[in-house]
Structures are given as structure tokens and as C-alpha cells.
Design a protein around this nucleic acid. Structure first.
Length: 602
RNA sequence: GAGCCCAUAGUUAAAUGGAUAUAACAGGAGCCUUCUAAGCUCUCGUUCCAGGUUCGAUUCCUGGUGGGCUCACCA
């Protein structure tokens, strides 16, 4: 929409002889609505930008006075400000231009077609079964979900995939941990287990069966504690290390003695992840598991070795990344088992056989940047069809403020569902403090919780680390998700009342010139929405949408404070109702791109 | 040691190489017989250091300093 406005100005500028036209926005509305910087022109003509701007403004105003060439009724005034020529737009004209434009596009407003006919596979989430779903996974899930929606909004056919590590050392550590049960766990163990006693796998199986009757949360906690014990043992004593290595091999070999424990524990985890996905409104088209990639991974590395892509080194098979200005990485360990790298090859192959992606986007933390560079390079050699299509979207960390780094080994993680719970408690507390009974439904509280959490995680640049303060980051005031929902709730409340008081006469809009600055600001902002969604997809960064939502919300509140809707004269009232309906629509759609659902009341 | 990333009010974050660096939170002062005060208005306060490129640098380059991450058989 902004583009249409700017193209009018472009025509006008071209009419008075300016060739290259680019616009910017003045720092405040008192200086104009759209600015034309004269730096480029000044350089070309060898004059100072200030002089050029002054001359251009005069030239323009002359033409304007003569009423030739000037077609645009949008322009009210043109002034030079230092090196800029600033355009002041006519509020009423902008209002009708923007409203008509948005109405015409309807639901399509802010959507794009650049992705039409293109497919992208977006990989996100990626928790490890049998381990905690921690804050990092939560942020990744929320980010990935939003990236998916931003791409869908641009017309792409998006496939959501989730790759989960259900084999490997961490699983072996859990199994080992299950064999060492401290009495404090309160789990009824067979045979009077003492602290640190080692159970046989049969006994573990027995125990798992007993735990099966417990609620999901406890079953998952049971696994989580086992992981912590196993991981600590792995670091602390060599015997444990050996035992864990052996268990790891048993996992890869699908050893029958561990099968029941393995498949049961894995399923508990997946069920638990599902509850989180559901709660946050995410879903996946395809769940990939390492257990389905490792065999093919070995084959691919072997094939690559034949072709000279991979080489042997110290008994392991590596990709010599150092030949490409990267670093070497092990794809097959000396025992012949594939590493994460080796499995990734098979995963990539699956992506390209299961789907026909034009791009595969891996939403993963920045600590894996080096890893992906090497793997992508190896893939180029091995599976040339992936060349240029694999993309690592670097997600920033979610770091707890003022605390040590979390580690599931140390068991000091705050899990995703714990955080969700925390936010929910806070929202209930605020409701209680207000002492008003809004009769908010459970669904509404869940939506507000989601909004607080998601917005906090999405408002910073996607690759930016977010320092997470339990008290502050998921706030419900100011620059927060609930603030945004509040705007929509306010609008809906007005609209509801308007319906009651309306005389149901079909209004004909004859927009008067009495547009307030607050209204004009809203229209100009509404006009930029499509540019925002375009930028978000271009930069793989939903934060642009988040920031825009906040800006729009602030502009609405400014309007709300000084422009009554219901008490306005009939014509103004109808006009303002149309305006706030448009704000509601853009807010609702924009928030949906962030995975945030609006509420009717709060 | 090498490579990559980061450094902006007290805090958390903005700013296609452009105007007076923008918000939120925290602090201070106000605003609810008026469409939802989860709000609004006012106020205090910021570009790590040293060079360079440029008419112009928070942004680009070089060198420091301080953090984070990665660098062979974990994922």
C-alpha cells in the first residue's frame, strides 16, 4: 500500500526531472510524512544536498501552483528540511486511499505471492526424546512456527518437519541412569535397592512397567532424573563410561534386552512433546528420527568414501573440511557408527525424496554454525541436488539472566512446560489483583499465556540472544504479548457496543478533512503492513512483524486516548469504526503470523 | 592457539550508510463520574576504546578490550 503512495510521489518527482527516486520516513510527523533524501542527486550534480533540496522544493511548488504535471491529490504540502524534501500528505486522501486499497485486497492484504509454486521444508523443534524439553527447545519451537507462518503468508508450500535424536549417547545415559536408582526417587524398586545400586535391564524393565501407570509428567521426570544420573556418572567414572558406550551400541544394534525400556521411554517422551506442541499451537507434517537415518547414513558415508569425498583418519571416517577453509569433522566413528554428521546426510536425502524442496531451512542455535557449514559442503559433493538449498537459520540463545548456563546434565534446567506454567500463574495473579471478575474463560487465559511467551521470544531479532528474566521477560505490560491482545480486546469491545447503538443506517463515507494526526498515523502505519511481512520472509525473521505489531498497538492507543469512537458525530463515528475494524484485522492477521491468537475480552 | 558471532540508557531491546539514536521496563511527576488504567501524558538517562573510508558511521574496514560459541570419534 505504501508502495502505491510512493509511486504517486515518484511520478510527481519524475515529472519535475528527478530520475532516481528512493524514499525514507522522517523522524517525526511534524517534519512530514514521506521524505526524499537528496544526497544522491547532490552528488550527481555536484551541489550540496541542502541546496538541491531547497531548489527541488521550489521547483515542485511552482509546478504545483500551475497545476500542470501534478496529478496526486495526496500531496498537501512540500517542504525542504536540510538535505531532504519532505512531503506532507493530505489526511483525508490518505485515509480514503488506504481504506479503499485494503478493502479491495480483503483477506489478501499483507500476503504475497513470491513463494507461489515453491516448496520449503522447515525443520524446527528438535527436542531429544528421553531428555527434558527445555527453554531452548521452547524458543526454537516458537520461532520455527512463526517462520513457517511467515513463509506460508508469502505463498510458499511449507512442510514442517521435526528431527529428533532417539539414538545416541544421551539415550544410553538415560538407560544407565535407570539402572542406578537412589531411594530418594521413591520409585518402588525390586529387591530392596540401596543408594546407587545397579539394576539389571530386566529389573529396569520391571520398574518401567510399574511407572507406566503414573501420570505423564511423572514418567517424564523419572526419565529426566535418570539422564542426570547417567550423564554425571559418565563424567565421573570410567566404568560407567564403558557401560554407557556398550548401552549405546545396544541401542544402535536394537538389542532385544533394552527394547521394552527403550520404546516405552521414547513414547513417553514423544507424548510429552505432543502436549507442548498442542499447547503452543504447533504441529508437524513429518517427524524424523535418528533411528531412521543412521543405517542409511553409514551407507552414504561409505559411498562417499568410494568417491573420495570422505577419508579415513585415525580409524574414523571424516570429511576433510579443512580443504575448503572449514574444519574436519567425523562422520563415522572408529567403531563404524555414524555421528550426528553421518546421520544428517541420510536426513538430507530423505528431505529430498519425501518432498521436493526449493529450500530446506534448519532452525537451529548458533552453536551449530560450524557444524552445518561442514555438513552442507559434504552434501554438495555427495548429493549435488542439495547445493544451495540447505540453509541454517541461526536462532539466538535463550539465556537465563544472572544464572549459570543451564544443562540437563546438571539437572538445573527450567523446562518448557514449567515456564508455561509460570507465565500462566502470573496471569492468574494479575487477574486476581485486579479484583474484577471478567469471567475470562480458561481458553482466554491460555491464549494470553501463549501471547506473553511467544511475543517475548519473537520480538528480538531471530539470531539475537535473548536474556531471559523470569520476572521481566514474559511481562504483561508495555512491550508485551498481552498488551497487543489488549488492543484487540478494546477494539472488539467498542465494536460490540457500536452494534447496539448503531441506527443500522448504511453509512456512505464522505471522508471529511477532519482527520486527526492520530488517525493519519494509523493509516500510514496500516499501509506499511505488506512491506513488513515481505521483509520478514526475505530476512527469515518474524521479529519484524512483532515489532510492527507493537508499533501499531501504540498508535492505536494514542488514537484511542484522544479520538472517541462511539461519542463522535455519526459520520466520524462510522469512519472511525471502519478504521478500527481495519486495525483489528491487521492486528489479528499479524499476530497469527507470530502464532498468537487474539481474545475477545481481557 | 585458530575461526565465527556479539558489544547501544540502570536493564532488555530498535535504528536499507543519513535528519534531534528509538521504545519498553525500572526511577520521578500526573491522568479513571468519559468507548477496558494489562492503558495514556510528562520526566530522568545511551552508541566499549583507538584509528580509517565517507559530504555523513550505531551501521562499513583495521587494530585493541570484554563476552559467547565452535574447533575428531557427543547431539
Amino acid at each position: 500500500m505504501m508502495k502505491q503512495i510512493e509511486s504517486q510521489l515518484t511520478q510527481v518527482l519524475q515529472a519535475i526531472g528527478v530520475e532516481k527516486v528512493e524514499f525514507s520516513t522522517p523522524p517525526n510527523s511534524e517534519m512530514g510524512d514521506i521524505a526524499f533524501p537528496c544526497f544522491w542527486l547532490a552528488k550527481k550534480e555536484g551541489k550540496s544536498p541542502t541546496d538541491v533540496a531547497t531548489e527541488l522544493a521550489i521547483k515542485f511548488n511552482d509546478a504545483f501552483a500551475k497545476e500542470d504535471m501534478i496529478q496526486s491529490s495526496l500531496i498537501k504540502e512540500v517542504k525542504a528540511f536540510g538535505p531532504y524534501v519532505n512531503f506532507f500528505l493530505d489526511g483525508a486522501e490518505v485515509a480514503s486511499f488506504v481504506l479503499n486499497g485494503i478493502t479491495e485486497e480483503g483477506e489478501q492484504y499483507g500476503m504475497h505471492t513470491e513463494g507461489k509454486g515453491k516448496q520449503v521444508v522447515i525443520e524446527f523443534g528438535c527436542p531429544n526424546p528421553m531428555k527434558v524439553f527445555h527453554l531452548g527447545h521452547l524458543k526454537n519451537l516458537v520461532t520455527g512456527e512463526s517462520v513457517v507462518r511467515v513463509f506460508e503468508n508469502a505463498g510458499y508450500d511449507v512442510k514442517r518437519v521435526n528431527y529428533q535424536g532417539d539414538v545416541g549417547l544421551h539415550i544410553a545415559k538415560v538407560l544407565y541412569g535407570l539402572q542406578t536408582v537412589p531411594p530418594s526417587d521413591g520409585i518402588p524398586a525390586k529387591g530392596g535397592t540401596d543408594d546407587g545400586q545397579h539394576l539389571t535391564m530386566e529389573e529396569v524393565t520391571e520398574q518401567v512397567r510399574m511407572v507406566s501407570s503414573r501420570i505423564l509428567k511423572e514418567r517424564v521426570a523419572f526419565l529426566g532424573k535418570a539422564y542426570t544420573r547417567g550423564a554425571n556418572a559418565y563424567e565421573e567414572n570410567k566404568d560407567a563410561q564403558k557401560a554407557i558406550a556398550r548401552l549405546n551400541e545396544m541401542v544402535y544394534e536394537r538389542d532385544s534386552s533394552i527394547q521394552e525400556v527403550y520404546t516405552t521411554g521414547r513414547q513417553w517422551s514423544l507424548d510429552y512433546f505432543d502436549t507442548i506442541y498442542k499447547k503452543l499451537g504447533s504441529h508437524f507434517d513429518r517427524l524424523y528420527f535418528e533411528s531412521e537415518t543412521y543405517e542409511r547414513g553409514v551407507e552414504l558415508v561409505e559411498e562417499g568414501k568410494q568417491k573420495g569425498i570422505f577419508v579415513e583418519s585415525d580409524g574414523a571416517v571424516i570429511f576433510p573440511g579443512s580443504e575448503y577453509d572449514l574444519h574436519d569433522r567425523v562422520f563415522l566413528n572408529s567403531k563404524g557408527y555414524p555421528t550426528y554428521e553421518g546421520k544428517e546426510l541420510a536426513l538430507a536425502e530423505k528431505h529430498f525424496t519425501d518432498f521436493t524442496p526449493d529450500q530446506v531451512i534448519h532452525v537451529v542455535g548458533k552453536e551449530q554454525t560450524g557444524y552445518f557449514q561442514v555438513v552442507f559442503k559434504a552434501l554438495e559433493q555427495l548429493l549435488p541436488q542439495t547445493t544451495g538449498k540447505e540453509f541454517h537459520l541461526v536462532g539466538g540463545y535463550l539465556q537465563l539472566k544472572g544464572e549459570q548456563k543451564m544443562s540437563s546434565r546438571k539437572g538445573n534446567v527450567i523446562s518448557g512446560d514449567e515456564l508455561l506454567k509460570e507465565v500462566e500463574e502470573k496471569i492468574r495473579q494479575i487477574l486476581a489483583e485486579r479484583g474484577e471478575d471478567h469471567g475470562l474463560s480458561e481458553e482466554t487465559i491460555q491464549k494470553i499465556t501463549g501471547a506473553a511467551l511467544k511475543y517475548a521470544m519473537l520480538k528480538a531479532d531471530v539470531s539475537q540472544d535473548v536474556a531471559f528474566d523470569m520476572e521481566e521477560s514474559v511481562s504483561t505490560t508495555g512491550d508485551s504479548g498481552p498488551y497487543l491482545l489488549y488492543i484487540v480486546a478494546r477494539i472488539l469491545s467498542i465494536l460490540e457496543k457500536a452494534q447496539n447503538t448503531s441506527n443500522k443506517k448504511q453509512a456512505i463515507f464522505n471522508i471529511q478533512s477532519s482527520i486527526t494526526p492520530e488517525e493519519k498515523k494509523l493509516f500510514l502505519l496500516l499501509a506499511t503492513y505488506p512491506d513488513i511481512t515481505k521483509r520478514a520472509v526475505r530476512e527469515y525473521d518474524p521479529s519484524h512483524v512483532a515489532k510492527y505489531m507493537f508499533e501499531l498497538a501504540q498508535a492505536f492507543n494514542a488514537f484511542y486516548a484522544v479520538c472517541p469512537v462511539l461519542d463522535a458525530e455519526e459520520e466520524v463515528k462510522e469512519f472511525r469504526i471502519l478504521l478500527i475494524k481495519t486495525v483489528r484485522d491487521v492486528m489479528t492477521r499479524g499476530l497469527l503470523l507470530l502464532g498468537i491468537e487474539t481474545v475477545e475480552k481481557m
